[in-house]
Simulated assay, not measured.
Amino acid sequence: MASLPPRRPPASHPPVRRGGLARLVVVLLAAAALGAGLLAAPVHAAPSADEIEAQIDKQWEQLEPTIEGYNKVRAQLKANRIKSAELEKKMAPLELASALAMNQIGALASRYYMSGPSQELGALLTTTKPGTLGEQLVILDRLAGQQRKQLAGVLAIRDRYHAQKQKLDALIAAQVRQQNELAAKKKQIDAEIKRLTASLPKTTVKVTGCPTISGVVSSAVQTAIRVACQQVGDPYVWGANGPDAFDCSGLTQYAYKAAGISLTHFTGAQWSEGRPVSRADARPGDLIFFYSDLHHMGLYLGNDLMVHAPRAGKPVNVLSINYMPVAGFRRVT
């Protein structure tokens, strides 16, 4: 019987390491889960135009008191410069009178210094009339006293006005410093507003004018309302009072100036320049103020509407007065 060939040993395979395979599966599953998580993670969208507008509105509420503070200092500075110029005009004749009086005293002193009093006394002694010497001495003393009194009066008036002018000059210097500080703040405000408004989409918005005003109002109020409404769509520029750009108190000042009524370019001053009116009695043409510090205002149109210059980035427009906390109404006619 033929012998069978010897069997070849089976090919050897590396042993399966079950622990390693399990770890590989876990790693692959974790990577897949991580990838799915990344894909499912929410993507934060850029803020919308409305959200940016809301940010600016919130920041503007804090910035506008500084703007109106600038307007206040500027109005005071203008008034005090006028007062200073008026005082200088009044002081000019006083300075002249003082100089003339000083010249008279100087001439008298020089004459006595050079010649001495003996000449005058000698002339008096040679007189033949009894009692003349005593009379002339009294007259000379009286004349000297009159000159002293006149000079003292002139100098007192001059010094009084000079002291007032010094106070005004000091006040103006302080206000100039304050105005410079506010101007520096203005740059910061403008930079921040520019940064925020740069993110707004560039769109063109057609703004409607004022509604029809019903009720009995004076011709001056009619003019003020008409002029204010003609500015709807004009840009807000703080510190501006027309004719092509406005801030809130600049718009009301401009509108009533056209009606022949002078108002100061500052919300606090316009509050004082009008007489108080309750909300129930408010009528078109009244000034309306907002916030406890009166840092914003507009021109009331009735039916809870006003025309106002809101802020940078928003043109003059018509808005509900319920958008902000109302501080009160004032009537200037």
Rank of each mutant, 00 (worst) to 15 (best):
M1F: 09
A2P: 15
P6F: 04
R8G: 05
P10R: 13
P15D: 07
P15L: 11
A22E: 06
V26Q: 07
V27F: 12
L29C: 05
A36D: 04
G37Q: 11
S48A: 07
A54K: 11
E64T: 10
I67L: 14
I67Q: 07
G69M: 12
K72E: 15
K72W: 12
A75Q: 10
A79P: 01
R81T: 02
K83T: 09
K89Q: 15
L96F: 02
A99K: 12
L100I: 02
A101W: 03
Q104L: 04
I105K: 08
G106N: 13
L108A: 13
R111Q: 08
G116D: 08
G116M: 08
Q119R: 14
T132D: 15
G134C: 04
D141M: 10
A144I: 09
Q150E: 11
A152Q: 13
I157R: 12
Y161D: 09
H162I: 01
H162S: 15
K165N: 13
Q175S: 12
Q178T: 08
N180V: 06
N180T: 12
E181L: 14
A184D: 11
K187P: 00
Q188G: 03
S199T: 01
L200G: 08
K202I: 05
T208R: 15
C210N: 02
T212N: 06
T212G: 02
I213V: 11
S214L: 10
S214V: 09
A224K: 04
A224L: 06
I225R: 04
R226K: 12
V227G: 03
Q231Y: 09
Y236C: 06
G242F: 03
A245Y: 01
A245P: 06
C248F: 10
T252H: 07
Y256I: 00
A258G: 05
T264P: 03
T264I: 01
A269D: 09
W271P: 01
E273N: 02
G274K: 00
G274C: 01
R279N: 13
R279F: 03
D286V: 00
D286A: 01
I288N: 00
D293K: 01
H295C: 07
L299W: 02
D304F: 05
L305H: 03
A309C: 10
G313V: 08
L319A: 15
M324R: 12
M324K: 12
P325H: 08
F329M: 00
R330M: 02
R331D: 03
